[in-house]
Design a protein around this nucleic acid. Structure first.
Lengths: 244, 244
DNA sequence: GCTTGACCTTGCCCCTAGGTCAAGGTTCGA
DNA sequence: TCGAACCTTGACCTAGGGGCAAGGTCAAGC
């Protein structure tokens, strides 16, 4: 009977590779057909139908073992299974859409690496004119904070945000940022150290001190990064620590 | 420095498994960090950033080897690569949508297994009142035909369609279908055989014979399927062959 | 001080869904 | 009749981890 298909013809018809068909035989999805006189596999139209079913389910991401079971399940079970598979597919499509969004964020900056509220905060710093170096140090600090106690991050962020509403603090922040590159002998360091001590004193009198105001936190985050300090900052640390 | 992450903390932060991180170390995607005094890996915030990048690209289906290259590529190369990856993702989403359509067809019938024009033809047969058995035989025949010479199928289908516009042929087709279950001694077989011979005679006189009119084709397709003949049909074959 | 549970370490084999040779035998078309 | 295109089995390879074994370590509670 010449009206039977070779494995290559079957593969072309169903849009799969020969290797895939042999794999399906091995997994018991498609029964091995009879061989012709030269040992070639010869397939029927029914095999083609089964193979198209297999291909469709496999493209939908159904594991081969499950496909095997579905192929000889009763129609209701099959219908229910297809509904479920379709649902999964819908979810996966949505997930891929989300991945595309993340990919777009990856292209644009660091929004992806921290929680949205931290990202907003970093954007605000950027608007204030804070250097990229400082922002990176901040970002890394927040990442560490989030791993340590994710629930608290939100609170800490809002406290830091409030702090930033104080013009004097903002000015100090920016000056510290700028001072990073100064010479340790720069006379402006003395003034900056003075203003820092004053700010702390006033702050203490105005409200109870909360952990976020502790400069140790900032220093911790900074020091976790190599190159996060500078001669000028070391000098500043001396000037403020020595007399507080 | 306690502000460094253990592998578990890092994994939680980035939303991957510990095993995946170790796998990324092995593949050179993430450099092995320093160990603490007890041999535990200790990670920095920078590692977290890198890991989130890796996770995002991996979710997008980028092979790990490619991710490794992208991680230390220059920004333009990266941007171009991301654009390309995004494109692929778009394609894959579209493909999954198509798979969903096919899944829906799988649920509803055999449309999926043959080309649309064959499916339309089979639907017409169904409307004509042809039995499901016969339709299955037809379907399998068309599948074999499509694998043998896909380009010609369209032509053959239109010829068969035209044939079906002949009321006498339609009647013969339906009667043959019905005769499948008859007893080989059924007197109606004689009449059917006569009408068949007459039809062929008239047909021959009306137009030149084209291959599609050759009943051998139909018989070939039928015989490729076990149970595709019956005592009554065997008798009919005798009655028509014997005298033609 | 001891236990318990949660963490970390390396190493090994296992999985899916095939792809890629290699080393032949077969069939088809010009 | 000859080369191209097919078919056969077998063995090995791949990505992206999962799971388990057989430990070492750390922090909390009693």
């Amino acid at each position: 009977m010449s009206s039977m298909l070779t494995i290559g013809q079957l593969a072309d018809y169903a849009g799969v590779t020969i290797k895939a068909i042999r794999h399906y035989h091995q997994r018991g999805l498609l029964t091995e057909p009879d061989r012709d006189s030269s040992g070639y596999r010869r397939y029927t139209a029914e095999d083609a139908v089964t193979l198209v079913k297999i291909r469709t389910l496999a493209h939908a991401g159904v594991p081969l073992a499950r496909i095997r079971d579905l192929l000889d399940a009763d129609p209701e079970t099959l219908t229910a299974a297809i509904a479920e598979i379709d649902h999964d597919l819908e979810d996966r499509i949505a997930q891929l859409g989300r991945t595309r969004d993340q990919l777009a964020q990856l292209r644009r900056g660091d929004r992806l690496f921290v929680s949205p509220e931290v990202a907003d905060y970093l954007d605000d710093l950027r608007d204030l004119g804070v250097s990229e170096r400082a922002i990176q140090v901040e970002r890394d600090g927040w990442i560490l904070m989030q791993t340590a106690s994710p629930e608290d991050t939100s609170l800490w962020i809002s406290e830091k945000r409030e702090l930033m509403t104080d013009p004097e603090f903002r000015a100090l922040y920016l000056d510290y940022d700028a001072a990073y590159d100064w010479s340790p002998n720069d006379p402006r360091l003395l003034d900056l150290a003075d203003r820092t001590k004053n700010w702390f004193t006033n702050r203490h009198s105005r409200s109870e001190s909360s952990p976020v105001h502790n400069p140790a936190i900032a220093r911790l985050a900074e020091q976790s990064q190599p190159g996060a300090s500078s001669p000028a900052w070391d000098r500043l640390a001396q000037l403020t620590d020595g007399q507080s």
